[in-house]
Design a protein around this nucleic acid. Sequence first.
RNA 1: GGGUGCUUAGCUCAGCGGUAGAGCGUCGCCCUUACAAGGCGGUGGUCGUAGGUUCGAUCCCUACAGCACCCA
Length: 970
Amino acid sequence: MEKSFEPAQIESKWYERWEASGAFQPSGQGEPYCILLPPPNVTGTLHMGHAFQQTVMDMLVRYQRMRGMNTLWQVGTDHAGIATQKIVENQLAVEEKTRHDLGRDAFVERVWKWKEESGSTITNQMRRIGAAADWSRERFTMDEGLSAAVRKVFIDWYRAGLIYRGNRLVNWDPVLGTAVSDLEVNNIERDGHMWSIRYQTSDGKDSVVIATTRPETMLGDVAVAVHPEDERYTHLIGKTLALPLTGRQIPIIADAYVDREFGTGAVKITPAHDFNDYQIGQRHGLPLMTVLTLDAKIISPATSVTPATGGPAQIGSRGLAVTHEPTKYIPEKYWGMDRFAARKAIVADLEAAGLLVETKPHKLQVPVSDRSDAVIEPMLTDQWFVDLTSDTLADGRPGGRKTITEPALDAVRSGEIKFVPENWATTYTQWLDNIQDWCISRQLWWGHRIPAWYDEAGNIFVGEDEADARKSATTTPVGALRQDDDVLDTWFSSALWPFSTLGWPANGPVKNERGEVVANWEQDKIFLPSAVLVTGFDIIFFWVARMVMATKYFTGQVPFREVYINAIVRDAEGQKMSKSKGNTLDPLDLIDGIELEPLVAKSTKSLLIPQVREKVEKRVRKDYPDGIPAIGTDALRFTFAALASYSRTINFDIKRAEGYKAFCNKLWNAARFVLMNLPEGEIAAPAGTPVTEAERWILTRLKQTLGEVEQHFISYRFDHLAQALYEFTWNELCDWFLELSKPALNGDDVVAAASTRHTLLVVLESVLRALHPIIPFITEEIWQSVAPKLALTENSLMQRSWPRAEEIVADDAATAEIEWFKNVLSGIRKIRSEMNISPAKTIPLLLADGDASDRVRITKFAAQIAFLARTETPQWIESGADEPAAAAAVVGTLRVMIPLAGLIDLGAEKARLAKEISRIEVEIKKCEGKLGNANFVANAPAEVVVQERQRITDWNTTLTALREQAQKLG
RNA sequence: GGGUGCUUAGCUCAGCGGUAGAGCGUCGCCCUUACAAGGCGGUGGUCGUAGGUUCGAUCCCUACAGCACCCA
């Protein structure tokens, strides 16, 4: 083995060998254990969040595989509709083209090409972090099999009446030209204005002042609403107002939704451009008047306001009249104006008309598209929806709430699905309790095209293809059929991931484009439900809930038994990582290291605004003046494990990672030590139990540690798990057992030496197995050198079983011996250090008092003490004999002494003793305080009182010895 | 407005009813033949504030303050 741990050298070779050996595939034996990878964007790159999440999954999968489970880590990628389409559109923009210049087919072909080029980036990066996933079953949400699942689900839900087409208000992104999910809309607080506008009654005798942040939508006002009990307005309810700038007559209505305290207590109602107003409009049977086009301009006779969505527009799904005839209600001067220009113009015109009562600054929540940063416009369009809210359909069949939403709620409420940490279940159920119908159509070209056709009369035909749609139709199509232009929301296909990846809906083998079998539902359905879903809280709604809905509906099963919600990775100061802040970290840069200049170049590459570039460059130069050191995959993984508590964020501190690289080096060198102390060839196991206390102690500690680690795996406490193994390896194995083995290996007792050699090997091999799920590369590399010594026949550490606590014998007596030994040695070390005795100097050691067991132990450990504390052979001072002035450590009643002569300053030792005595006196006072309190003795549990009494006894023993020593020094 | 968290050593975080812990940093000594990415030893905290419950509170309860995030 090399003298120090070099991650780059060992990481490069193992992954390929593991993958080629088929070790990542299900063994076909044992209980099924499946983890689904949240499919990343196929054209994306790996970020810290992925690396963290995947490390967690990999630890679980590797651990369960070693425990003999039939493990499947199902991987694949997502087509990420909007994101991917946007990347390719941006590429076209560089060529000064739009997707419309290419046409649909050519554009989609181009996206596929981009997918082929960049699609393997993220999966190769996953390999770099060691993900032991079954790549032979890798899937893509738009591959043949998964697309078949999408069609089947759409058709089945449609035929069950659970998918419908409706003209509804949706979140419209006017830049991307598509509907987006309300989950893709962020409400951001921005500075705006609150305008108060006077609307006069039709008879001119009275007026109402309304307050609004969006005056341009007044063109579509159809009413003004007040609270029914608002005395300021009750006399006006039922009267009509003349809408300023247009003169159109609109009613004053009463609705309890109106907040009397807000603004003037009177609100304009624009049902076609506001979600709340839409609700009020429905309650009062108000018409919908569209004033904006799909690119957010005021409508004009020249612009089409009928959404360019797939099929023919339908008139108001809930029986409301929809109007979009600008000539009837929009003054010509506003026609075609951009929404923000129109706002200015209308405010100016109102002011000129003397109707603008007040303008004041106002902070408002602006809905902004997550995808384009455009301000979202609620817009009436024709879209497809999944019904999640109705109990029964018009024809009497059960509705979506009964068949989709409630089963998904019950799965969590009943405990069939468990969230970890469990409070996320609340988030899940609250969202589902208030869920709206799911808008699943998107006005994009990249995605699963909706399997619906329209005839010339606007009738809908749904099927696998046009022929199937015709065949299953109940009416005869009028003229030619035309397929809907729109595609489905990406999450529609992701929702099917738990079963579509296993081969559903096909009955037999499913092949990929290379003709290889990737799934077979008949056999693979044993992996449903999967064991645990590891994912971020930000997609509980997007994805987790929808997987439960779809999987429950189509398979009757839950998709997973547990959902481990992992923390979000932030920078060391707790700031969200963002490119424009310059605080992102590329996991591969941590693994491989990167020099400062390339790092600066990389961090600023995609930033277009000069000020931002400058800011980011400054920050990178400040944070990483020497670039980023290479810490290797194993250390990065260990860091993630150590940081993975139940906290909802983890602040990634590179210092922490460097510390865990040191841990890897420690393990490496411990292995070197063990191996260099072994003779050639196999090391046979000596008969019987290990000879020395040290061996039996380290095995006891190993047993305890493994037991703890198993518990931490069950509870997903990777931080505790990592810490338990870290402490065992470093603080017990390296600091004590390896040190204790030195005198044993070099001593005269050949039996003890042979036994110790074997135990060193066994404990090392067990630790490698225990650590392998966290740090697979280094453990495999070391194990390859260790295995022949134990005559192990497996080819890889991956094939070994995880070490089980119950296979190890504990020895409490040996543990007590070693704890005593550690106390003696620490006492001596403390004196040496505090008295500034050179570590190289061998010093005399005297012993006094103590009991019979101390005598036995001193005899037993004399060689170890002398070796590890650099002392001469210990000498007993018999009771009553003269003692030289000495510094002493007290262990029980035993005094362990180092003579002062020539070594120690008497004053310093007195001071040291005095400090120790006063510390113990404080402790004793605390104990006495408790025990002197009758209430404590009466009320505290008996064992606590006993424990307190024991403590005071122990303290007093030590105190007596210390005082005796102090007295001897004079 | 509704909801969920967080506040513990200089930093990043565990602990959550009975002796305040880890890693990193820091200070001192040491290049001792596994490891200076190391060894040994030390320093460092009235556990956000104020009340309450309890024999006992960092831990439970209430209020407040500050900081996040989610949903309207």
